[in-house]
Amino acid sequence: MKNATRLVHAGRRPADHHGMVNTPVYHASTVLFDSLAAFDASNADPFAGVHYGRLGTPTQFAFEQAVADLENAHGAVSTCSGLAAIATALLSVVEAGSHVLVADNVYGPTRKFCDGLLARMGVTTEYFDPLIDAETLAGRYRETTSALFLEAPGSLTFEISDVPGLAATARERGVTVIADNTWATPVYFDAFAHGIDLSVHAATKYIVGHSDAMLGVISCRDEAHFKAVRHTSIALGYCAGPDDVYLGARGLRTLGQRLPVHEANGLALANWLAEQPAVTRVIHPARADHPQHELWKRDFSGASGLFAIELVPAKRERLAALIDGLAYYGLGASWGGYESLVLPVDPGSSRSATHWDAQGPLLRIHAGLEAIDDLIDDMAAGLARYQS
């Protein structure tokens, strides 16, 4: 089955819901049983059937099955946010005294979680250069290493790690490989084919696709990882809201149609920006001038709409003039919705293993679904204000 077909049909069972095309939204806490025997049987297997609202409803299970089918996973577990998915994935494999290896370019809240809650648990986090080679990384493992956490590309600076090479160093030592796959989604990056054990998504972004729900999901390579993640999620009390899960399932149906537009708009915008005098650097993995472009071509089948540019140095008020006058780009966190966004970021403030070298401000740009000519004209006017 091709991805386009799978996105439309995965997780749908109309016959189980009176013929409804979409699995209905189940708002539920208490689940009633016909008999004590049925209640006892339900408690015997928490991975089968519906037991209690927090443990999952048909709405949640349909979404999870769809994601698992798309990613060729044994199973998937949904959570209430992308960060909750990251936390659940890590907590499913660590214990007091564990050591985890984390790429230095990860999503900021991932670092805060590692340096905060995991540290208080007695878990040591060691950050490494995302461009490290496999042989050098192999020397960083300890007897207590339980996880390798990757993000390719990094969500601010867009380095592409040698994911298969780095993953191999972990798998040969029995260390779980976790990857944040939000940028590419399962459509453009086959996580398990590249050595990943747990593929984490901030489904809030491209999977939901409309900036109207908070949602995370973890796809698990095998039954052992699935059970560990599911038990951890239950123990933490994480459960995605039924309406948000429904919006995630709905967003999946058009993901294969939206992503190519994001990709085309992002690349066209990046190519145009590369020619502008106010721009000193464009950081887009799909451009031939990206330092890891060949790795991107080897491992990815496409690009999303998220990339970054570095501007020539200027005072903060010039940056404000650029941003505040934009008509079609919103200023805000997140990305992956239908709308274009721009966000000034400072990667240097959240690095410890590497140094971010930039003279001017860095803007992270998300290319939405608007007409590309409008996006370019709007940005051209903004750059003119920046240089005035």
Rank of each mutant, 00 (worst) to 15 (best):
F61K: 13
F63K: 04
F63E: 03
E64F: 10
E64A: 10
E64K: 12
A68M: 10
A68H: 08
D69K: 10
E71R: 11
H74W: 13
H74D: 01
G75N: 06
G75T: 04
V77D: 04
V77L: 07
V77Q: 06
S78D: 08
C80S: 15
S81G: 12
S81K: 07
G82S: 07
L83W: 00
A85G: 12
A87S: 13
A87E: 15
V93G: 09
V93D: 01
V93Q: 09
V94R: 03
E95V: 03
A96T: 15
L101I: 04
N105A: 10
V106I: 12
P109M: 07
T110F: 10
R111I: 03
K112C: 08
K112Q: 12
F113S: 02
G116E: 06
G116W: 06
A119H: 05
R120G: 00
G122L: 06
V123I: 04
T124R: 12
T124F: 00
T125L: 00
Y127N: 01
F128E: 03
F128Q: 02
L131F: 05
L131G: 13
L131N: 14
I132N: 04
D133A: 07
A134M: 08
A134E: 14
E135P: 00
E135L: 11
G139L: 07
R140T: 04
Y141T: 12
Y141W: 15
E143G: 14
E143M: 06
E143Q: 14
E143H: 13
T144I: 01
T144A: 15
L148Q: 07
F149K: 01
E151R: 07
E151H: 13
P153K: 11
